[in-house]
């Protein structure tokens, strides 16, 4: 059984003119345990919405999102929150670290709503990512690359089975981007987590085998193009 299996997923939103716009129409998508895959797509094509639905932050209008045998579309918001906390890690383009907290506390925050804070593991992760001596630093005291690594440690803190990465290197220069991607992939591999990464950066996408174009996956985009 696949770790993640999407079938006939649809999502629409109402635009400012009051018209319903379909942004997602995905007949099928699967991700196996420990699989690392990348989706390529331009900005505004619905990639983030897609990840948010998988994470359970949003709910699709139709279809099913089966994660580890559970259909997220049938779960209540609280159950989806709990599942996300325990089983998924999320790496954002803007890292979304909390400024008032140290690097260690940011990682511990990632654990708060899952299995519970484990400072030893949090420190080990930060150490593994080269931040062993910076765990007391606040995000503003860290470089952008270091912030990215704290975000990665937080995403992996709960030993998730799936890491969702939304343009994770979008704010980094090419050298740091390559380095960050390497770390994400290595750590997911080490931790046994599957990785679903979305990006529009060819350099990043080039490191994955069999990159899927999001426009091919999402029929809503081709419909828009046909209409155009």
């Amino acid at each position: 059984m696949a770790l993640l299996e999407l079938t006939d997923l649809t999502k629409s939103y109402v635009d400012p003119d009051g018209r319903s716009q379909r942004i997602l129409d995905i007949p099928s998508f699967t991700l196996e345990e420990r699989q690392q895959t990348a989706l390529a797509g331009t900005s505004g094509c619905g990639k983030t919405t897609f990840l948010n639905i998988i994470a359970g932050i949003l709910r699709g209008d139709g279809g099913s999102v089966i994660f580890d045998g559970k259909d997220l579309s049938q779960l209540g918001e609280g159950e989806r929150d709990a599942l996300r906390a325990r089983e998924m890690g999320y790496v954002f383009q803007t890292f979304n670290l909390l400024e008032g907290y140290t690097a260690l506390e940011n990682v511990l925050l990632g654990m708060l709503f899952g299995p519970g804070p484990d400072p030893a593991r949090a420190l080990a992760l930060l150490d593994r990512l080269g931040l062993g001596d910076k765990y007391k630093h606040r995000p503003s005291q860290l470089s952008v690359g270091q912030q990215q690594r704290v975000a990665l440690a937080r995403a992996l803190a709960n030993r998730p089975r799936l890491v969702l990465a939304d343009e994770p290197t979008g704010n980094l220069d090419p050298v740091h981007a390559r380095e960050a991607l390497k770390m994400i992939r290595e750590l997911c591999d080490e931790q046994g987590a599957a990785l679903l990464l979305v990006s529009h950066d060819p350099m990043i996408l080039g490191t994955f085998d069999g990159v899927q174009e999001f426009s091919e996956l999402n029929r809503a985009l081709s419909t828009v193009e046909d209409q155009a």
Binding site: D81, A85, L98, L112
Partner: peptide, 16 residues
């Protein structure tokens, strides 16, 4: 709001 959105994305429930 951003802080709460991040906490929610990390799995915090609305009630939390």
């Amino acid at each position: 709001r951003r802080e709460f959105a991040i906490l929610r994305a990390l799995g915090a429930r609305k009630g939390t």
